[in-house]
């Protein structure tokens, strides 16, 4: 008989190891909880709230909530999916997400989560914010229209690359991604296309030049399978193995 601790997720027993969060344990057990700012190689951030679950009746972020033996978790309920849809709709309304011309379309996690949650419209009034494109760097360009402020690039540049190229500035609706250079231009940082920060953006703000549209429509990652079916690919595992498989 197994003695490993478990919690129930929508009635299913999920085993976990000490220190795992609900999202990590669920993904390890191949159960999908919608999420955007979580990345298996980084410390959970808990900012997008798309992974909101009900743990013992409380709304919490699955990516940061520690798994506890005997806990009762609700995930795939209409109430929670409604909340998640609203969050995704707000992200679409507050940025400029023009999917038809975006080279990250079909690779984009925001788009894939939208498909999975059946988000058919942003619903709200679109902000149409004025945000610049920074194409100053020879290898990497930035399209800030798509930024969802998940801070994955900030975390990657700080923790993996040790370069501190990105940061968030401002508060509330004025919060935005900035580049750590006096000029504010990416060309004036030591960013390189091989940096971890150049590969973690879930929505196509940070893109490598001369690589767009290489994968034909129909064969892009989220053309093939919905994000919920690819959940195992995001399961916690050593970074080296993760990169090799991708």
């Amino acid at each position: 008989m197994s003695t490993s601790p478990t919690f129930t997720l929508d009635g299913r027993e999920i085993p976990f190891e000490a220190g795992q969060t609900v999202l990590q344990a669920a993904l390890t057990a191949d159960v999908y909880i919608p999420h955007l700012c979580y990345h298996p190689e980084f410390k959970p951030h808990g900012s997008c709230k798309v992974c909101t679950i009900k743990a013992d009746g409380r709304h919490v972020s699955a990516c940061t909530w520690p798994a506890r033996h005997g806990m009762v978790v609700e995930n795939a309920t209409e109430e929670l999916d409604d909340l998640r849809r609203t969050l995704v709709q707000m992200l679409f309304a507050e940025g400029n997400h023009f999917c038809p011309s975006c080279e990250y379309s079909g690779h984009c996690l925001l788009q894939a989560v939208g498909y999975d949650l059946q988000v058919e419209t942003a619903g709200f009034r679109h902000f149409f914010p004025v945000r610049p494109v920074d194409a100053s760097h020879p290898e990497v360009w930035l399209d800030l229209n798509r930024c969802i402020l998940c801070e994955l690039c900030v975390r990657a540049s700080d923790e993996v690359d040790g370069k501190h190229v990105f940061g968030l500035s401002g508060r509330g609706a004025g919060k935005h991604l900035i580049v750590n250079a006096l000029s504010g231009r990416l060309a004036d940082t030591d960013m390189a296309a091989t940096d971890k920060a150049a590969e973690v953006c879930p929505v196509g703000v940070i893109l490598k030049k001369k690589a767009g549209f290489r994968v034909p429509i129909g064969e892009r990652p989220f053309d093939r399978e919905p994000v919920s079916a690819q959940a195992a690919r995001y399961a916690p595992r050593p970074p080296a193995r993760h990169r090799e498989e991708d």
Binding site: F92, F98, P100, S101, A122, H126, F128, P129
Partner: peptide, 18 residues
């Protein structure tokens, strides 16, 4: 019924909004 990216998001014509 709104059909397509332009009816739903403004789409390509809305690229002039900035």
């Amino acid at each position: 019924v709104a059909i397509g990216a332009c009816a739903i998001t403004g789409g390509l014509p809305a690229q002039r909004n900035h």
